[in-house]
């Protein structure tokens, strides 16, 4: 398949994903904005005032980057997991499987669809955050790069979850029992400097901690971890998930008999 034809295939999948999540915007775009607004009100304005500074910044300023990143991560993941599993469930994925579209293009189309939703929700949450605090970006390249990479990473994870899933329950297990705890314990609401050395060490095994802190570093210029290592780690995880996803696609895992 030539480059032009692959581009058409990719953009078709991507456009369909955009159409899907914008068509059902009350389910995909509104809930995360409401949730994050409540976080801003409760943790930022109400409780935050009594907490004081965190990492050298007022609590509201500290928590905003984490909440933006949290919304990007969860929405990127959820978009691909639910969309690709629904395509499997309705068997409309067969439209793609019988077409000449290469496996990697299928995966890229879905992943970039997830990235688009993650970034769109992140942008809306950022706009809402502006009502609660002044927001300036210290390192634009770091901020943009880490949010993009995190969206790609969790879209890939959602894609793999959807391939393995054989019920709608199976696409909610990972977000509920893995993603949510890792996100809440990933330095969104606190600096790991507050923790004892043991829990600090344990927290450093949490990949989300690196993404949240890198994003916070991009905005505020402070981080609990080495940002360079965070980028290296994220890139390695992306490479592993790309390889895993392509392996599953080429072997037709739960897609072909």
């Amino acid at each position: 398949m030539s480059g032009k034809l692959i581009w058409i295939s990719f953009s078709t999948i991507f456009r369909r994903e955009l159409r899907r999540f914008t068509r059902i915007w009350p389910q995909t775009l509104v809930p995360p904005v409401i949730t994050m607004s409540l976080y801003f009100v409760i943790f930022g304005s109400l409780i935050g005032r009594r907490i004081g500074d965190m990492g050298g910044y007022p609590y509201m300023e500290f928590v905003v980057p984490g909440l933006i990143m949290m919304s990007v991560i969860t929405n990127s993941y959820a978009n691909v997991a639910s969309s690709f599993y629904s395509a499997k469930f309705q068997r409309s994925v067969e439209e793609l499987l019988v077409s000449p579209t290469p496996n990697w293009t299928v995966m890229a189309g879905y992943v970039f669809g997830g990235v688009a939703r993650g970034l769109m929700v992140g942008l809306i949450v950022t706009l809402v955050a502006v009502f609660f605090t002044s927001l300036s970006v210290k390192y634009l390249v770091v901020t943009t790069a880490i949010v993009l990479l995190a969206a790609v990473l969790f879209s890939l994870a959602g894609f793999i979850n959807a391939i393995y899933a054989n019920s709608f329950d199976a696409i909610s297990i990972i977000p509920t029992f893995v993603l949510t705890p890792l996100t809440y314990l990933g330095g969104v609401f606190y600096s790991i400097d507050l923790l004892s050395p043991f829990w600090q060490g344990l927290s450093k095994l949490n990949p989300i901690l690196y993404m949240v802190n890198s994003f916070r570093y991009g905005i505020l210029g402070v981080s609990d971890i080495n940002v360079v290592w965070a980028f290296v780690g994220v890139l390695i995880f992306i490479a592993l998930l790309v390889g895993w996803g392509l392996y599953l696609m080429s072997h037709g895992k739960r897609l072909r008999h």
Binding site: L5, T12, A87, E95, S99
Partner: peptide, 26 residues
């Protein structure tokens, strides 16, 4: 195929346009 295998929530014309895209059609 024997079983319906298109997205039930898409418009009829979108289903065809999308399929054309999967085959690299402008």
């Amino acid at each position: 195929p024997q079983e319906f295998n298109f997205s039930q929530f898409e418009k009829v014309s979108d289903i065809l346009m999308t399929q054309g895209g999967f085959y690299g059609m402008p």
